[in-house]
Simulated scan of single mutants.
Amino acid sequence: MRRFRRVASLGLLTLALGAAGACSKSQVEAQLPGVDAAWTAGCTAAGVAIGVNRREREAEIGTLRTAADVAGIDTDYKQWVDRAVQLLQLAEPTRAPLELRRAVNSPCKAHGHSISALNTG
C-alpha cells in the first residue's frame, strides 16, 4: 500500500507539472503562479523523489531545475533547488549529512511542507 501511495503521488505530481523532458519553461510558469506554489510543488517533488529509485528521481530533478528558472521565483528558492538536487543525486538521500538534510527540509517546513523522510527531530 505504501508503494502504491508513492507511485500515485509521483504520478499526480508528474501530471501537474509535466514530465521533465517534455515540460517547457512556459508550461511550468503556467502551473506555478507564484512563490508559494513553487515551494509547494518543489517540496512535494523532493519528498516524492526521496522515496523512489535513483533513475526515477531524474524526472523530479528536472522538474525542480525547470521550476527554479521560472520568472519571478526568488533567489532563496533557486538556492534551495540547488541543495535539493545535490541531496537527490545521492544514492541514499535519507543518509545525507545532517546539515544537507536540514538545508533542504527547513525551508520546506517554514513554508508548511515538511519532508517527513528528512525530519531530523
Rank of each mutant, 00 (worst) to 15 (best):
Met1Asp: 13
Arg2Pro: 02
Arg2Ala: 15
Arg2Val: 09
Phe4Lys: 14
Arg5Ser: 13
Arg6His: 14
Leu10Thr: 11
Gly11Met: 12
Leu12Asn: 13
Thr14Ala: 12
Leu15Ser: 14
Ala16Glu: 14
Leu17Glu: 13
Gly18Tyr: 03
Ala20Glu: 12
Ala22Glu: 14
Cys23Val: 10
Gln27Arg: 11
Glu29Phe: 06
Glu29Ser: 15
Glu29Met: 09
Gln31Glu: 10
Leu32Asp: 01
Gly34Phe: 04
Gly34Lys: 06
Val35His: 04
Asp36Met: 02
Ala37Cys: 07
Ala38Pro: 10
Ala38Phe: 08
Trp39Glu: 07
Thr40Gly: 11
Thr40Ser: 12
Thr40Trp: 08
Gly42Arg: 01
Cys43Lys: 05
Cys43Gln: 07
Cys43Trp: 00
Thr44Arg: 13
Ala45Val: 05
Ala46Gly: 04
Ile50Trp: 05
Ile50Asn: 02
Gly51Ser: 13
Glu56Cys: 04
Arg57Leu: 08
Glu60Asn: 10
Ile61Asn: 09
Gly62Lys: 09
Thr63Trp: 00
Leu64Tyr: 10
Thr66Leu: 10
Ala67Val: 01
Ala67Leu: 01
Ala68Phe: 02
Gly72Leu: 07
Asp74Ala: 05
Asp76Gln: 00
Tyr77Arg: 01
Val81Met: 04
Val81Asn: 01
Ala84Gly: 00
Leu88Trp: 00
Gln89His: 09
Ala91Met: 09
Thr94Ser: 09
Thr94Tyr: 05
Thr94Cys: 03
Ala96Ile: 03
Pro97Thr: 10
Leu98Ala: 15
Leu98His: 09
Leu98Gly: 10
Val104Met: 02
Ser106Asp: 15
Ser106Gln: 15
Pro107Asp: 13
Cys108Ser: 02
Lys109Asp: 15
Ala110Ile: 06
Ala110Val: 03
His111Ile: 07
Gly112Ser: 10
His113Asp: 14
His113Cys: 12
Ser114Gln: 13
Ser116Arg: 15
Ala117Thr: 04
Leu118Thr: 03
Asn119Glu: 15
